[in-house]
Nucleic acid binder design. Structure first.
Lengths: 198, 198
DNA sequence: CGGTTCCTTGAGGATGATCAACGAGGGTGG
DNA sequence: CCACCCTCGTTGATCATCCTCAAGGAACCG
């Protein structure tokens, strides 16, 4: 959780419910608001001219998203939609700046948050440039495990569809499927009844 | 320029000269220092197992670089080398935090800087996922033009070798060359005596 | 059950990577 | 001033592989 809910509400934050798959903002929109997820899940993504989707990142309960353009007066480089029924609190940009100035500790939080985002984007870019599909998928899977709160020793079930993995890695579904079964053969992942374990 | 030189020196900043091509830090190093360029140019990059280089970003005179891992206690996801003879001032991580607390205005600067980095990484990721080489190269060229201080109306000469463009876009030199000559045929770039204009 | 979403497989084609060779330019030292 | 070298640019032929298109099967849910 980045900013306290009550503070957001005091400064005029607005709570809104979203169905699954609703648009929060679109690529190219001007950035007016700060968004923080109270419940649900949001993905930021791009669609290429040829219709291929690329998922930039995904945000869960308690996370804020779409802040960078607020600070540099830019248009959103990606769109955002809910991937689950969600409750999101939204606050005007200027009010956010007031909160940051009144509670400077939040600035430290924000710096850490942005630093982590850059770090993640750098590593995923590194993994993707590698044209090798297996390396891309491994990059995605390792990223998942790193962000698991419960550091289970063994394998975890990967809660993503093949299509989603494709959209994260910039590959096609069929390539993901074929690469995964090769990886299973080599013992790096496990697949049981279509469920993927890593 | 992010932090004033005299402040950095007062807090124990150390000035060091680098030849062209010297390593500042390596991928996987633990992040101990804040770096700011007084003179010269630095690139951050990764090398894939197959030996292909990918340039994550490039930093000029007056810029700091490699900060994110400082704030989240992570190893460097990329290495940094000078691409010109350079003078770089370096400051221990803890001292940087002290400066940020003593001069909170720098925190605002830092937030903007990190926001801009995320924005750039998001747009380049978007451009690269598009497997189309022309789209990738256009993404790179547009990025260049956006960051030009002098907004010349006409074409600018692109100050990068074909190999560098390849390393920025994740393509191979030959592909860059062939794609560029196709783009010249279509009038989107110009090439004169091997010099590239956009 | 019936529908929807997801997974899987095969065949074929497109295209970027690879490998090899050569050309062009610029700088340096004799 | 020339010869050499080194970096950069260029081209062609071939290959590997991911994408594309098409079809069908499996799981899940109301």
């Amino acid at each position: 959780m980045l900013i306290d809910k009550d503070i957001l509400l005091t400064w005029g934050g607005l709570i809104k419910k979203y169905k699954k798959g609703e648009v929060v903002f679109r690529e190219g929109d001007y950035a007016r608001y700060y968004y923080q997820i109270m419940e649900g899940k949001v993905k930021m993504y791009n669609v290429s001219p040829s219709g291929k989707e690329f998922i930039q990142s995904e945000f869960m309960k308690g996370c804020s998203f779409g802040e960078p353009p607020l600070f540099i007066d830019e248009l959103y480089p990606s769109g955002a939609v809910t991937t689950e029924p969600s409750v999101i609190i939204r606050l005007a940009k200027d009010k956010l700046f007031e909160i940051l100035n009144d509670y400077p500790l939040y600035k430290d939080e924000l710096i850490k948050l942005l630093a982590k985002r850059i770090y993640n984007k750098a590593t995923t870019a590194r993994d993707i440039i590698n044209n090798d599909p297996e390396a891309r998928i491994l990059g995605f899977l390792n990223h998942l495990k790193r962000n698991k709160t419960d550091q289970e020793s063994g394998m975890i079930e990967v809660p993503y569809t093949r299509q989603e993995i494709a959209n994260y890695t910039g590959l096609r579904v069929e390539t993901v499927i074929r690469t995964l079964s090769k990886m299973k053969k080599n013992g790096v992942v496990n697949i049981e009844q279509h469920k993927l374990f890593y």
